[in-house]
Simulated assay, not measured.
Amino acid sequence: MSDPSLYTYPSPLEGYRGLEPLPDVKTADGKSYLNPAAEKRSTAYDSFVAPIKNDSRGGFDVHIYFLQSDDEEVKFATELWERIRREFPELRIYRLWDRPIGPHPMGMFEVNIFTPQQFGAFIPWLVINRGPLSALIHPNTDEEERDHTQRATWMGQPLPLNLKLFKRMGKKQGESLRGSLNAQ
């Protein structure tokens, strides 16, 4: 996976500094804290937070993996794929790949999620219905390698991705940028 020290992280309190201290009052369960009412609802309910994409690519990709040499897993993945297509037609669902493709080490299919509401409905559904399959959930930003590593979340057993693809993409993008800069 990725080394977290390679990245910078803005403070989670950006935009919330200098406010009154939060109350130290607990709720009736005696364990959780009573939170003050917010002046307005978080915009994260309606659109993905920057730098996550809110466009036709989708804010999140979900890659659902299966061992292509295991007939039972292939059957289960095929049935899951069909069920997702029927129950969540608003999501973009790609074909079943019966071999490794891109950075993905085994057979898989991909689902794109476009809104926080879809994310909130589909991810809990997948937690219950994915069976023995592993799933990689990652945001779509302009940092492909980071999205697939440091920002990724796994359901089930994490799998090693082929990150060489991202290294080559980064090198090619850098060479292309240098070439266009030299041409000016």
Rank of each mutant, 00 (worst) to 15 (best):
P4Q: 03
Y7G: 04
T8K: 14
L13D: 15
G15I: 01
G15M: 02
P21E: 06
L22P: 01
L22M: 10
D24C: 10
D24F: 11
V25D: 10
T27R: 15
T27G: 08
A28P: 07
L34N: 06
P36G: 04
P36Q: 06
K40W: 07
R41I: 12
D46H: 06
K53I: 04
K53Y: 11
K53V: 06
S56H: 11
G59E: 05
F60Y: 15
I64W: 00
F66L: 03
F66V: 02
S69T: 15
S69F: 08
D70S: 09
E72A: 14
E73S: 08
F76M: 00
F76E: 00
A77W: 02
T78R: 09
W81L: 09
R86C: 09
E87Q: 14
W97S: 13
W97A: 10
D98Y: 13
I101G: 11
H104V: 06
H104Y: 11
P105A: 03
M106F: 01
M108P: 01
M108W: 03
E110V: 08
V111N: 01
F114G: 02
G120C: 11
I123A: 08
P124N: 07
W125Y: 15
W125L: 05
L126H: 00
V127F: 11
I128P: 00
P132A: 05
L133Q: 02
L133R: 02
S134T: 08
A135I: 00
I137T: 06
N140D: 03
E143L: 10
E145F: 06
R146K: 14
D147V: 05
D147N: 12
T153D: 08
Q157L: 11
P160E: 15
L161A: 03
N162R: 09
K164Q: 14
F166G: 01
R178F: 13
R178D: 15
Q184I: 15
